[in-house]
């Protein structure tokens, strides 16, 4: 019998050797982990782990995932059908796969619109009671009486939230992409996959901003309900009223609506809102034909060839947007840090 040609002990020896090797690698990894832990705030690991476990098993997260999944699949189905019937016409434009995410037949908004709309809610929902919740449950003083750094609580909750959202969005993006593949039947190119990934990462960054804002609010307000309400207020303000407000302000400053200056100021005012930053970034990422953001003069457009940008150039175009969102996140985080570090914690 062929199997018996190789004595059993030889197999066991090989296994033992592999085991030994794995062990050494494990040892190295452990040492490396210890070293990294040395410069992280004490207690970060356990807090992040617990918060992550809490989040992914929470009803809150479940509801949001369900909401995103249902809307995502609905919009995907509608656009998928539309693209399928028009694939022949769209062929010359290329990037059919990305259209699954951005195109709409008018009946339902595209996937990106849904994600863009729900992302702030996701961030706010995961963070609005980060600190105030611990305080209301009277666990905060017990937690802070352990030998941990205070910032470990903030950072741990933030990292856990971003991790949970990242995992969820990645899974959702892949699922929608896969379903789209089945529906449309056009495989994505490497460029398209990269763009998709960049879109997901941008969305994670966007959620991270709202999460940091929510954590800040949870530090500021003692009641979780107040904090949630304030968060939703800010979100609605940026999503619904910022553009109106920007129009008003620009109209008052530069009454000549046709002037370049008017358009420029309007664009910059709009970009103070994270919602605008995100929307522009996503449009640029998922629609390679977008080559310029903001006002463009007719003479600049004359003679320009219709074409698409490579992903590197698209990323370059939205780099300020990404930086803006990151800066917003850092500002929120720094503020909560300052407020929380020296606060007196009473039970």
């Amino acid at each position: 019998m062929a199997l018996q040609l190789r004595p059993a002990w030889l197999g066991r020896l090989a296994e033992a050797r592999r085991e030994l090797k794995r062990h050494a690698a494990g040892e190295r990894l452990a040492r490396w982990v210890r070293e990294v832990q040395g410069w992280l705030p004490a207690g970060l690991g356990p807090i992040a782990r617990k918060e992550f476990a809490d989040l992914i098993t929470s009803w809150r997260m479940g509801i949001l995932v369900a909401l995103l999944t249902v809307t995502g699949i609905a919009s995907l189905y509608v656009t998928g059908m539309a693209i399928r019937s028009a694939a022949g016409v769209l062929e010359d434009e290329g990037y059919i796969f990305l259209k699954i995410f951005t195109a709409s037949d008018g009946r339902l908004p595209p996937f990106t619109a849904f994600v863009g709309f729900l992302a702030p809610l996701l961030g706010l929902a995961l963070g609005f009671d980060a600190i105030s919740g611990e305080q209301n449950r009277r666990t905060l003083s017990r937690l802070l009486a352990q030998p941990i750094h205070r910032d470990a609580v903030l950072v741990g909750k933030f990292v856990a939230g971003v991790g949970a959202v990242g995992a969820m969005l990645l899974a959702l993006g892949m699922a929608v992409g896969g379903l789209g593949l089945i529906l449309v039947g056009v495989p994505p190119t490497g460029d398209e996959l990269l763009r998709l990934l960049a879109f997901i990462l941008t969305t994670v960054l966007y959620v991270a901003f709202w999460l940091a804002l929510a954590i800040l609010l949870s530090v500021v307000f003692r009641h979780s309900a107040t904090s949630a309400l304030a968060g939703i207020g800010i979100w609605l303000f940026f999503a619904a009223f910022w553009d109106l407000l920007a129009d008003l302000v620009v109209g008052a400053m530069i009454p000549d609506t046709g002037s370049l200056r008017h358009a420029q100021v309007r664009t910059w005012l709009g970009r103070l809102s994270p919602v605008t930053l995100y929307t522009e970034a996503v449009v640029t990422l998922l629609t390679p034909t977008v080559r310029v953001l903001g006002p463009i003069l007719l003479e600049q457009a004359i003679g320009a060839l219709k074409g698409t940008l490579p992903i590197g150039q698209s990323l370059l175009l939205i780099l300020p947007h990404l930086t803006g969102m990151l800066a917003g996140t850092v500002v929120c985080f720094a503020a909560s840090y300052v407020l929380f570090m020296r606060r007196e914690i009473r039970a």
């Binding site: 449950r137 009277r138 666990t139 003083s141 017990r142 009486a145 352990q146 030998p147 941990i148 039970a347």
Partner: peptide, 15 residues
Amino acid sequence: KRQVGYLPDNVGFYD
């Protein structure tokens, strides 16, 4: 905090 244990007034736990 490594050497001191603290039982706060009206202690809370993760329910």
